[in-house]
Simulated assay, not measured.
Amino acid sequence: MDRPFFLRIDLMLSLLLSLFLAVRTQKLEKMREEFKKLRDDSMELNLLLNKKNQYLMEKQETEVHLATLKERNRIAREIHDNVGHMLSRSILQLGALKALNHDSSLSAPLSELHKTLNTAMDSIRTSVHGLQESSVSLRDSVAEIIHGYPEYTVDLEYDISEPPPQNLQFCFASIIKEAFTNASKHSDAARIRLVLREHPSFYQLLFEDDGSTAPKSYSSGMGLLNMKERIESFHGTINITFERGFKIFITVPRNTASYQPGGKS
């Protein structure tokens, strides 16, 4: 056999080997890519599961806390309606008994009993007030409102260390609820930013969405007049605009935040 023949054989073997190695390399690269994708999918799934578990834990904690607050409120009502009512009757009956009493030896004991019942009544009022104060939390109310609108991605910034006065908590919670209701009815938004912040001299509330469709009349209607009346009763300011989304900006001075209907503070 001549030398060119062997060269052709070597060349063919080299080509076959190269082809084999190329196919094998391609298969290894494909397997590597599949492994990488599987690893990434697994990591992403683990992250999603961790996030879901965290969400469920937070949701459970919130629901337990809200249930506790509701139970406190129920107990406060029970004490006020039952024990408070019986004490009030006892005080009235004792007052009538003192008016009818003609035995001077009973005057001092009856007066002392009257004083004791009044002290007990004051203690009941203080306890009920304390339970009612602790049964309503602005932060929990906000969390409950947000939970009722899962269709939105909500960026919440809550920066209030000490709870505001009770009436202002109710006011802010009502306005936030109304704002979410308006967004669901009149906006095409998908994301909402909610800010609650305290400053040295005032409280701040900001609600804004990323909607692109302006309400037909956002300066009136849609419960917004009610919002304005509520904030003005606290001598606060409220600005409602539509600039790249619907926006409500509120400030309430801290020195008027304890306003109560009827002019009390």
Rank of each mutant, 00 (worst) to 15 (best):
Pro4Gln: 04
Arg8Val: 00
Arg8Trp: 00
Met12Trp: 04
Leu13Cys: 00
Leu17Pro: 03
Phe20Arg: 03
Thr25Lys: 06
Thr25Phe: 14
Gln26Val: 10
Leu28Pro: 03
Leu28Lys: 12
Arg32Cys: 02
Glu33Thr: 15
Leu38Glu: 12
Arg39Lys: 15
Asp40Tyr: 11
Ser42Pro: 04
Ser42Ala: 11
Tyr55His: 11
Leu56Asn: 01
Leu56Lys: 12
Glu63Ile: 12
Glu63Asn: 13
Leu69Ala: 02
Arg72Lys: 15
Asn73Leu: 11
Ile75Leu: 10
Glu78Gln: 13
Ile79Asp: 07
Ile79Glu: 08
Ile79Tyr: 10
Val83Thr: 08
Val83Asp: 07
Leu94Glu: 01
Ala96Ile: 09
Leu97Ile: 05
Leu100Met: 06
Asn101Val: 10
His102Ile: 12
Leu106Val: 04
Ala108Phe: 03
Pro109Val: 00
His114Gly: 02
His114Ala: 09
Ala120Ser: 05
Ser123Arg: 06
Arg125Lys: 01
Leu131Asn: 01
Gln132Val: 10
Ser134Leu: 07
Ser137His: 03
Arg139Cys: 03
Arg139Pro: 08
Ser141Leu: 04
Ala143Asn: 09
Pro150Val: 04
Glu151Cys: 11
Tyr152Ile: 07
Asp155Cys: 12
Asp155Leu: 14
Glu157Lys: 15
Tyr158Pro: 03
Leu168Gly: 08
Gln169Asp: 06
Gln169Ile: 04
Gln169Met: 11
Cys171Arg: 12
Glu178Leu: 14
Thr181Trp: 06
Ser184Gln: 12
Lys185Ile: 13
His186Arg: 15
Leu194Lys: 08
Glu198Phe: 08
Tyr203Met: 05
Leu205Arg: 07
Glu208Met: 13
Glu208Thr: 13
Ala214Thr: 10
Lys216Asp: 14
Ser217Arg: 13
Ser219Thr: 09
Gly223Asp: 02
Leu225Gln: 15
Ile231Phe: 02
His235Val: 08
Gly236Thr: 05
Thr237Asp: 13
Ile238Gly: 05
Asn239Pro: 07
Phe242Gly: 01
Arg244Lys: 15
Arg244Asn: 14
Ile248Leu: 06
Ile250Gly: 01
Ile250Cys: 06
Arg254Pro: 01
Ala257Arg: 01
Gln260Asp: 09
Pro261Ala: 06
Lys264Asp: 03
